[in-house]
Structure formats: C-alpha cells, structure tokens
Design a binder for these strands. Structure first.
Lengths: 212, 212
DNA sequence: CCTAATATGTGAATGAATGAACACACTTTG
DNA sequence: CAAAGTGTGTTCATTCATTCACATATTAGG
C-alpha cells in the first residue's frame, strides 16, 4: 500500500506529517479507531480533504467504520520512512542552530541531528548535547557517509557558498532559515523557512482583519 | 495607492514580504529601476506572477520602462506598515525563544520584540540583550499597552492555555512554533510554524525525487 | 518628431485545490 | 440473518492560483 496510485498533490504532501502526528497521538492515548470528521476537528482540516488525501495512498479506511489508528500510524510512518533513521547535519551553530540541536526533534526518534559545523574557532571542536561541532572547512572529511540531509542556519550572506559546498559533499535535501534564494542542482530539494516573511504576512492579514 | 483595488489573494499576500525585501536590497545597492523578468531571476518567482501581484496594488510600473525601485520600497513598505513600529511580545524563553530575542529581526527595525515571558523562576526578572523576562502569570500587568502581537515558543502541551491568556490580554496576531492547533476567536490570526512537518515533507519530496 | 524597441497590465486558458453530495460497502443491532 | 445505520471513496462543481500571450503605453534614439 506504500505507493501512490495517482500523483500525490503538493498540498497533500505537506499534510502528511500532520496526519502522522495526529495518528501517533491517538495511538498513545489508546484510541483504536477514528472517523474522518473526528479527525477533522482535531487537526482543523475539513473531513472531505482528509478522506481525499487518505485515498490517494490507497484504501485505508472502511465504510461504516472509519480508520484504524494503527493502520494510519503504519501507513504514514512508511510514507515518512520513520523506520529508517534520517541522519541530519546542521550548519551554523548560532542561537538558532544551538536551539535546534537542543531540540533535535526529540518527538521523532527517526530524525536525528548527528553533527554540526561552524566556522567560529570558539565553537569548533566543542559540542552541544553530545553533538560535535567541526570546522565547516572540514565538511567533506567529517560528513558521515550516507547523510544527505542538512539544516542551514547561517547568515544570508554565506548561504550561497554554504549550499554549493553541501551539494558538492552529497547533500540533496536542505532546510534553510536564510531567505536568500539560491540556484541549486535539479536533484537537490530546498525548503526555505522565512520567519520574517511569515511574521510580516501574518501582520498584514491581522491588520486587514482589524480594519474590517 | 495603498488600498487594494480588488481582493488580494492569499498567495499574493505571502509574497509581499519577498517583494519588499528584494526592493530594499536593490535600493541599498543603488539600483533605481528593475524589470519584472529581472526581479523574477532574483526571487525565483515567474515574472507573470510578479506583474499580476503588483497590479493588484495599483499600477506600480510603466510600460517600456519597468518599476522604480523607490516606488516599490515605498508601496510595499506602506502595505507592511514599516513606518509604524510593531512591538512584539515573546512567550517562552527556551533555546528557540532566546535565539529569537538575540536575532530580534534586526534587518527590520519596525519589528521589535520588547518584552518576554516565561514561567521558569530561574529566568524571571532576568534579561537577554536588554529584553526583560517576566513571569507569565503577570502577563496582564506587564504587557505594554498597544501590543497586539505575540510569538509563542512554548511546549505544545502549554500552548492552548497560553494562547487563551494572550487573547484575554488583547493579543490578536500570533506566530507559534507549537504545531498543536487551537481554537481561537475569529478576531485572532494565528500562524503555525511547524519545523518538524516542514522537514518531514521536505524529506518526502526529496526521497521521491531520488526514486525517479 | 517619428520610428523602433520595450515591458507592463490584463483577458483568456490552464491547472491545482477545495467543497458538496451521495452511491455503495461495511457494521451493528435486534 | 435481515434491516437500519454509518462513513468511506469518488464524482461533479467551484473556487483559487498560475501561466500564456498580446494590445497598449511608454521610452529611447536618430
């Protein structure tokens, strides 16, 4: 049931993690079955959207019954490959980078920051929460084999060069907090987390709402 | 020229900050005019989309000429109300909260975290970078008049209660890093920043790309 | 001043995502 | 085992967003 029978839409893909998390939480609370409309209340997504999303991964539910929570955890877990650990490298141990290491996606044991890089001599060869920090210049030597995922928390000005070097070292998935868009290889997938933009557009919406 | 002649689409709203930032950067570099296709290269948004977005705020450009950078800075600045400072309160001074205070949107002088709250006695009545930290229990007394914006960086489990109290204290715009969705007043605008979901869906896309 | 070149703003076409509604399959109960 | 109830998966309609393509307005140059 792993394969998508039809092309999965971008919007659906961005909701998979929400579904997985909700299913996990229900399982932890001992809930064994759930209806789409109940799920809709919990995660604030319309039940029709939920059913459509689910159906794009196969027939997960049963008419007149609903969905088995265990099935949802299983299926979405497989989609997100939670069974095989995803080792992650962090670039840039400033305030944000350090906070990410401390956090380290603890709720998701499969997501694991295993090593960090920085260019500040004061930080190099230290560690945070057991995660070693190396010089970014040594990226190629220090990057563990089989790691293809990076989180980038460096100043915008360094971003382009950093990402180029990551690509050269074999990284193919990048989440970055610097909003400066960069050109990358077609095989590389980049997601930009732009907190300033998020806040500004939130404020725009909020201001509009007040005016109305 | 401030008012939108027609309803501005949600997708467009989320791009306003990108346009503003790009215009600012060009102005700082002394660039005085720009064409939509040049802008498209810079911010990686198709030129047709840019022109349509811009046109929803009035006729900012001139045929055969392009856009005046100064006009763009001016117009988008007004849309984002950069002339009137937006004071922000931060709830939750953990690793992430502290990093946000240190950062404090320095590139945008109108965005300003002015005070923080936590419930950890070890942090209360201390300060970071001059930003005082008070007890969250004292929110109502300590919240400066006229502040309607909050950034929430507390554990998911506390989120619901925290947001309810923020609403009671007059906050109407909230950006939060806990993904647990909460019910809120219709006058409140909430934006969820869900780093785990972003990473998971990024990885899903990246894995699909490798398979193809 | 007139012509050639240019680049916007928009109507029309396409594509993506959501929403409404229901036939049918499965469950449950008596 | 039959009948009543329930909730999925899907079809059709609609809204939202992007892309195309060009008439039109402006600039630039001789």
């Amino acid at each position: 049931m792993l394969d998508a029978k039809t092309k999965v839409s971008k919007a659906t893909i961005r909701r998979i993690p929400l579904y997985y998390r909700a299913a996990q939480q229900m399982q932890q609370r001992g809930i064994r079955r759930v209806r789409s409309d109940k799920l809709a209340e919990i995660i604030h997504i319309p039940s029709a959207t939920i059913r459509r999303d689910f159906s794009s991964f196969g027939e997960l539910g049963k008419s007149g019954y609903g969905y088995s929570v265990a099935t949802l955890v299983e299926e979405f877990g497989q989609l997100l490959q939670v069974q095989s650990p995803e080792d992650i490298v962090l670039i840039g141990v400033g305030g944000l980078g350090a906070a990410l290491i401390e956090n380290n996606f603890r709720r998701n044991p499969d997501l694991d920051i295993v090593v960090a890089f920085d260019h500040d001599p004061a930080k190099i060869n230290t560690s945070i929460d057991g995660i070693p920090i190396y010089s970014f210049a040594d990226l190629k030597q220090r990057l563990p084999k089989g790691v293809h995922t990076a989180i980038v928390a460096v100043p915008s000005s360094s971003q382009e060069s950093v990402i180029a070097q990551l690509e050269a070292a074999g990284i193919t998935a990048i989440m970055t907090f610097a909003p400066q868009p960069v050109a990358c290889k077609p095989t590389t997938t980049i997601r930009y987390i732009d907190l300033t933009s998020e806040l500004q557009s939130l404020l725009y919406v909020a201001h509009q709402k007040q005016k109305a």
